[in-house]
Design a protein around this nucleic acid. Structure first.
Lengths: 217, 217
DNA sequence: GCCGATATGTTTCCACTGTCTATATACTCT
DNA sequence: AGAGTATATAGACAGTGGAAACATATCGGC
């Protein structure tokens, strides 16, 4: 509008951009906002396009379909979650038990604070993740945080031997399941507070840790 | 077709039925078939009506919308899951540790064998379960199986004191999280066998049990 | 600087969906 | 038998996903 050549130092890394500048990123941001605002992702792709100010077919230049767009939103969520977990581990570098409790609390806090986003990250429509390498990579990187904590714990003798991958799977199952159950209110904990959710997480995470320390069966 | 008065001993409890006989039940069955066959529930309500051989508006006489229909399908799943868990407990009435391991294995087996149905049961579109009392009741009854096992374990001194509800929540979190992760292949276990899934479940369930037996924090 | 190739965005069009309204049919009860 | 209600149908509507044809901006080579 103002200047027909707004391009120069527009938006992302690439200097001058095409028509929109960086529609791909704009669509992801818009979709993320809509997910968190509306608490669901049952909006239409046309609606996303409208809010981004482009025609209803423009998104198809960047995403095969709505699921592909949502996969990017979910991938952002995994990155954010990974950072939260990494920050939680830094608190207690000595005690693996404390580290696991902290990770559990941080994990559940993340989910409880952004339920819709968390649900999307593990939602069914993105289950065939083979289609979404970005999502898979972000998910794997998050899982790796847990694995590395357990590896260090084993190295220092605080965690029982056994397969680290199995142990990490158990730990992730615990916090993921807890988060899901709390979010979806499948148990009778309607309106549970974040603090209480974290308490559950610490308690359960510690119990599992103690179990792993003992016999590995 | 054959006889205009086929009604007599038609289908469900009620003797003679209306036009269709028991369209409500037929629609639930059809939807269940479609979920398991197609591995998803992104079909349209019109499609369900077509397969049931009725007009596209007939379902609205029995369900407010598609979600309400899916909620019934999910409720059936919870009933089936509850039966599977109850059968698993009957194997080892003496050892709570064994019972929990059996329950864990049965739970994960259920999910791995019917992934789409399981996903639906915990899917986001049915999260506001307050709308679906049947679903909530079925879900609660399933949770109760776990609770009762832990209660008996506490009574016989095999399980640490603490809040039974908290312990049950932890146990359910573990198996639910494991099932979800396996189903959605969020971890690198592509094409995991049912037997291996059960092994993971037993192992993790036992570890948690041992942790609960120790300190309750 | 100019030009074709390509990437990006728009407009138009179609089948289909969810849902509203009006109408028809079957069952219940008295 | 007839009134009232529950069940099913038919038609219409706006909105959707997506294909096709078209328009425009940017890039790479010259």
């Amino acid at each position: 509008m103002a200047n027909p050549r707004v391009s120069s130092a527009a938006r992302a890394r690439r200097p001058a951009r095409y028509h929109h500048g960086d529609l791909r990123r704009a669509l992801i941001d818009t979709a993320l906002s809509m997910v968190t605002e509306e608490g669901a992702w049952n909006f239409t792709l046309r609606e996303v396009a409208r809010r981004a100010g482009v025609s209803h077919m423009a998104p198809y230049n960047h995403f095969e379909d709505k699921s592909a767009l949502l996969a990017e939103v979910a991938a952002l969520g995994f990155q954010s979650l990974r950072q939260a977990l990494e920050a939680a581990t830094r608190g207690h570098p000595r005690s693996a038990r404390q580290a696991l409790a902290n990770i559990s609390a941080a994990y559940v806090r993340f989910g409880v604070q952004r339920p819709a986003h968390y649900r999307l990250m593990f939602g069914a429509e993105l289950a065939e993740k083979a289609r979404y390498p970005n999502l898979q990579a972000a998910s794997d990187a998050t899982f790796a945080v847990l694995t590395s904590v357990l590896e260090r714990g084993q190295a220092s003798g605080q965690v029982g031997r056994g397969s680290v991958r199995d142990q990490a799977l158990a730990a992730w199952s615990l916090v993921h399941g807890l988060t899901t159950l709390l979010i979806d209110q499948r148990v009778g904990f309607l309106g549970i507070s974040t603090a209480e959710a974290e308490r559950h997480a610490r308690q359960a995470g510690t119990a599992l840790f103690d179990g792993l320390r003992g016999k590995t069966d």
